[in-house]
Design a protein around this nucleic acid. Sequence first.
DNA 1: CACCTTATGTGTGGCGTCGAACATAACGGC
DNA 2: GCCGTTATGTTCGACGCCACACATAAGGTG
Lengths: 237, 237
Amino acid sequence: MTSPDADTLPVNRLLALLAARDYEALRPHLHRQPLEYRESLYAAGERIEFVFFIETGVGSLVNTMKNGQAAEVGTIGNEGVVGLPLVFGDDRAPTSVYIQVPGEGLRIKASLFKRALARSPTMQVVMLRYAHALFNQVAQSAACNHFHSLEQRCCRWLLMTRDRMDSDKFLLTQEFLAMMLGVQRPGVSIAAGGLQRAGLITYKRGAVAILDIDGLMKRSCECYAVSKKEFDRLLGG
Amino acid sequence: MTSPDADTLPVNRLLALLAARDYEALRPHLHRQPLEYRESLYAAGERIEFVFFIETGVGSLVNTMKNGQAAEVGTIGNEGVVGLPLVFGDDRAPTSVYIQVPGEGLRIKASLFKRALARSPTMQVVMLRYAHALFNQVAQSAACNHFHSLEQRCCRWLLMTRDRMDSDKFLLTQEFLAMMLGVQRPGVSIAAGGLQRAGLITYKRGAVAILDIDGLMKRSCECYAVSKKEFDRLLGG
DNA sequence: CACCTTATGTGTGGCGTCGAACATAACGGC
DNA sequence: GCCGTTATGTTCGACGCCACACATAAGGTG
């Protein structure tokens, strides 16, 4: 057997929610790997080969239109798992997941994950609870994308990312943020400039630092607080 | 035992997908009830008491903001079930479901549905497959709400409703459609007027008739075809 | 150092929807 | 028939973002 890369105490919050024996069943098959900027963890329409438990960094659940326009419909960090379609009993999805903020995660083969899940009703309970949390987040995003301004959504995104990074600094270009928010890059430039002038953040060539969390929350839409509360309810504060 | 209202051969497509013994387990507890215009089948944040298998009519999965703005993030018809949070092991959700086009459905107590589901892995498979289909629809809506014009989304909505009604005529006011699409009512008035002048639909005081399906598809965004294809893949054409 | 690549800032016209107000018209009840 | 209610049609200025173009600036590489 290969030597497992996962720690005895999991960093990933979803793994931490598993019963000890469920975690031990997965652990031999978990392999740590870096998650790199713009990397795809699975692509729309293609068979999902690996499941990822993110430890640091942030992945974006993205829906891409036929003309290439893309919009983020959900985010996944150290609270979750990339490969939810397998929990639904499917092996592919019409969405993709990209790494938006680089970090590290634990990888397991889809077949091994499916087998472990099928054998453990307690693991199913945890994974389904997370599925509901993400479902609700996507539903919130659907409304948020429609109603809220670019600046509000920028603030929301920065706050969500900070929570998942456990850090006030992380790597992120305006270009990529614009793609995720489904807007033009100059729009992000203007919004980010405003936030910087207001002393809420600073940034420089792909590196962002958050200075004033409360200020960001005031400028953010309610979706940040709603989504956070819902995750806490389902996955424990 | 009360006499069941459900037919031997189910009208609801999700019930039809169940194994015979799974359907028979539910059938004694299913009671037919009318689904009335604007009726709420469950409300955000409140305990879900009943699960509904829609036979005719259309329900909208709606996310409501604190200021009262509401947007539809998914629709449920005779292909699905209202009460998905129970499949996720939860008894409440931050979204609500309203009847947007009146019809009929079969109601079952949440506790009885949960018990039947827990006892039957084969029923779980079917319900999870539907959960994935709806998840993908919500993800599609999130991007659609952001990118596509009001007219495109009107066309999409009319086409989706037609599929679920198995009829080219149904009851629907512009006022309510505007609320679901998260736009102002005058916007729908203009869009609907354009579609009527183009000979694609007619309508009169809350009654819509679809005249030209192909024409509507041409004016619709791709999201109609994408969503339909995905449902067919997961639930069988 | 010069140079290329990448990241960010700024400007212009245009379109779509908002937000609000007002007008018309159909149906229902009495 | 009259009248209140409900449904639909139309207008207006305002604002946010699009689409596109171009300018500036900070890194990496030779």
